[in-house]
Amino acid sequence: MREVIGWLLDSDPALRWQVERDLLGRPEGVWGATRALVGVEGFGARLRALQGDDGMWAGGAFFPAGFDGTEAGQPWTATTWSLTSLREWGLEASALAGTVELLAASCRWEYQDLPYWGGEVDCCINSWTLANGVWLGADVQGIAEWFVEHQLEDGGWNCEWVEGSTRSSFHSTLNSVKGLLLHEVATGGTAATRAARARGEEYLLERDLFRRLSTGEVVGEWALRFRSPFRWGYSVLNALDHFRAAGVTDPRMAEAVEIVRGARQEDGTWLQGGRHPGRVWFEIDVAEGEPSKWLTFYAMRVLKWWDR
């Protein structure tokens, strides 16, 4: 255990401050000082430096300028992905002062040229925009209400609702409740948005976080495969970390917790299940099959929370 913690502490400030806070329980003065480094060194400083004068990254909202869909994988370089990374790494919003206004003036969604802070029709994109908006102080209340209006009958969401899908997706539902939680933490939410989040979480819980409701079979190998960064992808580890953040415990999570526990290697680490393919500014984690500091941190944090 001590060796693994030392290994985790030997990392970029974006990860190190979270290890200090969530695994070691160090005082805020300690982890806060490490968190302050995110904006001036390592991953955070590198990504901040890539922001354009127009407030965007790579000249686009969700896709980089000039993206024609022919390259392998989803590019992870545009504005939404860059903001999401900086937020998840713990960058203080003040470091991006003026970004809200710049994006309001110059950034439009690739879908129908819609204004950036108004969101679009994809619930995963809207979840990240909602989370990034409340972090930066943008007016994104309309996006929070959009989730209430577009929740499906079974309690979740599906980004393919535009194509007529009426059955929810594990991926879309988890991303949606994550965005709604961060909106709720920042603003208190409304009765309707709080109820929508609870319904979405129940959609996952009644499926034990990884089973089909109809047959009880595992919904897909992806649910048991841990990838870092999480990006849009669902896994029981990603889901459990959300429930930890939400302060929700339920016996229906127990089997998923044991799946996470069972993936721990003899040396106390968790292995990278494979990075999502696509263009990046720079890699922040190891290749498939190697011990991942990020996944080890997430798994240890989940197990600490559950076992406590």
Rank of each mutant, 00 (worst) to 15 (best):
E160P: 01
G189E: 06
E221F: 00
T193H: 07
A144W: 00
G155N: 11
N238P: 02
E206N: 11
R199H: 10
G155Q: 10
Q112N: 13
E217L: 10
S169P: 01
T190R: 08
A239D: 11
S168M: 08
W157K: 09
E101A: 15
E163P: 02
K178F: 10
G200H: 07
C107Q: 07
L136K: 06
G188A: 05
T166K: 15
N238F: 11
W117K: 05
A195W: 12
G119Q: 08
S172I: 11
V177F: 11
A144Y: 00
P115M: 11
L224Y: 00
H183N: 13
Q112I: 03
C159A: 09
N126R: 01
R197W: 04
L114H: 05
D154L: 08
L224N: 04
N132R: 07
E101H: 06
L209D: 15
Q141M: 10
D122I: 12
H242R: 02
L102A: 15
L174I: 09
A186W: 01
E221H: 04
V219N: 03
A239K: 03
A196R: 08
V148A: 02
L224V: 01
E201Y: 00
L240N: 13
I125Y: 05
L237K: 02
G119Y: 01
S228V: 04
V219G: 00
L130A: 07
G118N: 12
L102H: 08
E201M: 12
Q141I: 04
G200W: 05
A144E: 00
G137Y: 11
L204M: 12
D113H: 11
E101T: 04
C124Q: 09
F170I: 06
G200F: 06
S214D: 15
D122V: 13
L102T: 01
I125A: 14
T173W: 06
G155S: 10
T215S: 15
F230S: 09
S228C: 10
D139H: 04
F147E: 01
V218S: 04
L205W: 14
A131K: 06
L224G: 01
R108M: 04
E184W: 14
C107P: 05
N158Y: 03
R211S: 02
V134Q: 01
E163C: 09
V177G: 07
S169M: 13
A195K: 15
N175C: 15
N126V: 06
R108D: 02
D113M: 11
Q112A: 13
Y116T: 02
W232R: 00
F210C: 08
R212I: 09
E221L: 06
L204K: 04
H150F: 13
S235H: 06
A144G: 08
V121K: 03
L102C: 12
L136E: 10
E110I: 10
V162P: 01
W109A: 12
P229S: 11
V148P: 00
V236P: 12
H150M: 13
W109E: 05
E120Y: 02
G179Y: 01
G233I: 04
R227T: 14
N175A: 09
T173K: 13
E110F: 07
P115G: 07
F230P: 01
V148L: 04
N132V: 10
L102R: 15
E149Q: 15
N126P: 07
G188Q: 03
C159P: 02
E101D: 15
V134K: 01
A223F: 00
R227I: 11
G142Q: 05
A198H: 08
